[in-house]
C-alpha cells in the first residue's frame, strides 16, 4: 500500500509539520489520507513516515484505534493562562492554538522563531494576521514579567516525564525560569509514541508549573 501514497508526501509533510506543528500536521494528513484511502491508507502513511515522524505515527495509531479528533482541552489552557497578559509560545501547534486565541482577546501572544525544521516564519506569522508577534532568542526576555507565561506543546505524558521540542531546553535556563510567572506545557498528543521520539526531548513534568493534560 505504501506505493499508493504520492512520492512527495515525505517532503510535503515535513513542511506541514514545520509550519503547523507536528501534531496538527499529523491529524491533517491522517484525515486526508483516510478520506481518500481508508484505514489501509493510514496504515501505509504510518509505515512510510512513522519512523521519521513519531508524532504522526502515534496519531495514526490512535486513529486506527478509533479516535477521529484530537483532544484540545482549550478551556483548561485558558484557565491555566488566567491573569496572564503576555504569552510566549515555544513551538506551534496551529490546530490547538487557533481556537485558543479568540478566547483570550486581551492577551498578547508571541512566537519564538526557533524550530527543528526549516520554517518560513513570514508565512507562519502571516496566518495569524498580527496576532502572533515574532520573537527571537535575543529578544524574547523583553516579554518577561510577573504576568508573563512561557507556553510550549508537549507530546504525551508518561509517568513523571513528557516530550517537548528542543527549543524549550534552549529557552528555559535558570535565569529565564524566574522571569516568567508560569511555565506551561500543553499535551496535544495524549498518547504514547511507539517509535523513537525523534526531534523531541524528554523533560520531567516538574520542569513546568503546570502540564495541561490531553
Amino acid at each position: 500500500m505504501t506505493e499508493a501514497l504520492p512520492p512527495g508526501i515525505d517532503q510535503a509533510f515535513t513542511v506541514a509539520a514545520a509550519e503547523l506543528g507536528m501534531c496538527s500536521a499529523a491529524w491533517l494528513y491522517v484525515r486526508e489520507v483516510s478520506d481518500a484511502r481508508g484505514p489501509e491508507g493510514v496504515e501505509a502513511l504510518r509505515e512510510r513516515l512513522g519512523r521519521t515522524f513519531p508524532v504522526l505515527d502515534a496519531v495514526a495509531a490512535v486513529w486506527l484505534e478509533g479516535a477521529r479528533e484530537p483532544t484540545a482541552r482549550t478551556e483548561a489552557v485558558r484557565a491555566a493562562l488566567a491573569g496572564a497578559t503576555r504569552v510566549v509560545l515555544v513551538g506551534l501547534e496551529a490546530h490547538f492554538l487557533d481556537p485558543l486565541l479568540p478566547l483570550l482577546p486581551g492577551v498578547d501572544f508571541a512566537l519564538l522563531r526557533h524550530a527543528t525544521f526549516d520554517v518560513n516564519w513570514e508565512r507562519v506569522l502571516a496566518n495569524y494576521d498580527g496576532r502572533l508577534r515574532p520573537l527571537d532568542f535575543d529578544t524574547f526576555q523583553a516579554w518577561a514579567g510577573s504576568r508573563s507565561v512561557l507556553l510550549t506543546f508537549a507530546y504525551g505524558v508518561h509517568g513523571a516525564s513528557t516530550h517537548v521540542i528542543p527549543s524549550w531546553l534552549r529557552v528555559t535556563g535558570e535565569d529565564v525560569r524566574t522571569q516568567f510567572r508560569s511555565l506551561i506545557a500543553w499535551d496535544v498528543l495524549g498518547a504514547p509514541m511507539w517509535v523513537y521520539p525523534r526531534w523531541l526531548v524528554e523533560v520531567p513534568k516538574s520542569a513546568f508549573t503546570q502540564v495541561v493534560a490531553a
Binding site: A82, G83, T178, R181
Partner: peptide
C-alpha cells in the same frame, strides 16, 4: 497566581 510565582 502571583504568589505561586514568588513561592516558586
Amino acid at each position: 497566581a502571583s504568589r505561586a510565582f514568588v513561592v516558586r
